[in-house]
Every structure is written in structure tokens, then in C-alpha cells.
């Protein structure tokens, strides 16, 4: 068996389509997870206690079970409760739910890390609750959680590969299909590793850029 680059070039169109599905699911899933995670964290922080406890329990279950199994349950178990989803929507929903549990914990930590005094100072100059969240809490929190949020986004890039098992035609599914068809497992796996690595590096690069831009916040003043 020889490494054959021609194989890759020949299947480039379908590989690129897989890559675009991967990027698309990652982007939508991550944005969804950030938004839902933020809502969960806010509800746990500002909402009524029973709601907070219920959400806390759900977050624990999601964090305590493998993504693979969650996805299986959603796609194959969904129809038992009347939830019929095509592979792509099921994958997006699964990724969003899975990611939101982690993002909610990141935001929860972020909320707690903003000093109470900064909120009190805002109250004293007359900002109302919504203004405090928008002008003080969110910007301060986002700079505190940026490193762990980027880290989570990187993990989610790699989790998109799991969507192949419910036949979402993303990069892993396309490339392994080519691999099986031509018996070229090494090429396909090597290619996959390269693609994911490139995506992760890109995400990390953007994250570092953002961190550098915010660096003056982090020379924390006492």
C-alpha cells in the first residue's frame, strides 16, 4: 500500500463539501452553544432557585455522558418521543446541547469572577440592571472567560467528527468513505488529522488575536 496524493486531488470536490459541512456545523453549533450556555448561566445566576437547580442537574447529566451516546439517543431515540430529525439538524441540536452545558459552566465561573465591587460601583452611578449586565458584567466576563471559551470551541471542532455516526456528510464521513472505497485508510486518516489540525490552529490563532487585543484588561489592577 502506497500513499497516493492523486486520490486526494481526485476527490477534492467532495472533500471540500465535507469540510464546509464540518465548518458550518462547528460554527452554528458553537454559536448556538455559546448563546444557550449564556442563557443557562444567566438563569442559574439571576433566575429563581428551583429553575437554577433543574438546569444544574441537566448540565451535570450532559457533562457526565459521552457525546457519542447523547447523539445516538437523540437521533435513534428521538422518534420514540415523537422527535423525528434529519441527520444534519439532529447533529446541530446535539452539538449545541452538548456544548452549551460546558459553556454555561464557563460563563458561571465568569460571572463569579467579576468582583462584586464593580457591580456596586455601577449601581452607585445609577446604571439599571440591564445596563449593568450589558456595559459591565458582559464585557468584563468575556475577557475573563476568553481563554477557556476558545479552548471549548477547539474541542467542539473535533467533536463534529462524531456527527459522522449519524450520517451527517461532514469531513470525517466523506473522507473515511473514500478511505474504505479505495482501501486507503492511512491517506484518509492522515488527511483528516491535517484538516482538523489546521482548523484548530486557525481557531487558536483567532483566540490569541482576541486575547492580545484585550490584554490590557488582564494586567489586573488591584
Amino acid at each position: 500500500m502506497r500513499f497516493d496524493p492523486a486520490l486526494i486531488i481526485h476527490h477534492l470536490p467532495s472533500i471540500l463539501s465535507g469540510l464546509s459541512i464540518t465548518i458550518l456545523t462547528w460554527l452554528i453549533g458553537t454559536i448556538g452553544a455559546v448563546l444557550v450556555g449564556f442563557v443557562i448561566a444567566s438563569a442559574r445566576r439571576f433566575g429563581p432557585r428551583p429553575l437554577g437547580m433543574a438546569l444544574g442537574a441537566i448540565v451535570e447529566v450532559i457533562r457526565g455522558t459521552p457525546f457519542l451516546i447523547q447523539l445516538f439517543l437523540l437521533y435513534f431515540g428521538g422518534p420514540y418521543i415523537g422527535l423525528f430529525l434529519d441527520p444534519l439538524p439532529a447533529g446541530l441540536l446535539g452539538l449545541t446541547v452538548y456544548g452549551s452545558a460546558y459553556f454555561s459552566e464557563i460563563f458561571r465561573g465568569g460571572f463569579e469572577a467579576v468582583p462584586v465591587g464593580h457591580i456596586e460601583a455601577a449601581e452607585c452611578v445609577g446604571l439599571n440592571r440591564l445596563q449593568i449586565v450589558k456595559r459591565i458584567l458582559l464585557p468584563e466576563m468575556s475577557m475573563l472567560v476568553l481563554p477557556s471559551a476558545v479552548n471549548m470551541a477547539i474541542l467542539l471542532i473535533k467533536e463534529t467528527a462524531v456527527l459522522s455516526i449519524i450520517t451527517v456528510p461532514e469531513l470525517t464521513m466523506i473522507v473515511s468513505a473514500i478511505g474504505s472505497e479505495y482501501y486507503a485508510f492511512v491517506e484518509s486518516l492522515f488527511l483528516l488529522a491535517l484538516f482538523y489540525w489546521a482548523l484548530v490552529e486557525l481557531c487558536g490563532f483567532l483566540g490569541r488575536k482576541a486575547e492580545a487585543k484585550l490584554s490590557h484588561f488582564r494586567l489586573s489592577a488591584s
Binding site: V125, P139, M143
Partner: peptide
């Protein structure tokens, strides 16, 4: 109110800190 720990908002400049409530409130 002036606090022991200053409690300036770290994501705003000195000018931003002082003008914030004038703008939003």
C-alpha cells in the same frame, strides 16, 4: 460613592469610567 478597592471598570479607560454613567444614565 468612593470605594476602598477603587472598583474602576477594567475594560474602560479613565475617561470611559468617568463618562459611562453620563452616557448610559
Amino acid at each position: 460613592m468612593v470605594f476602598q478597592q477603587f472598583n474602576l471598570w477594567p475594560h474602560m479607560t479613565a475617561l470611559g469610567n468617568v463618562s459611562e454613567a453620563l452616557k448610559t444614565v
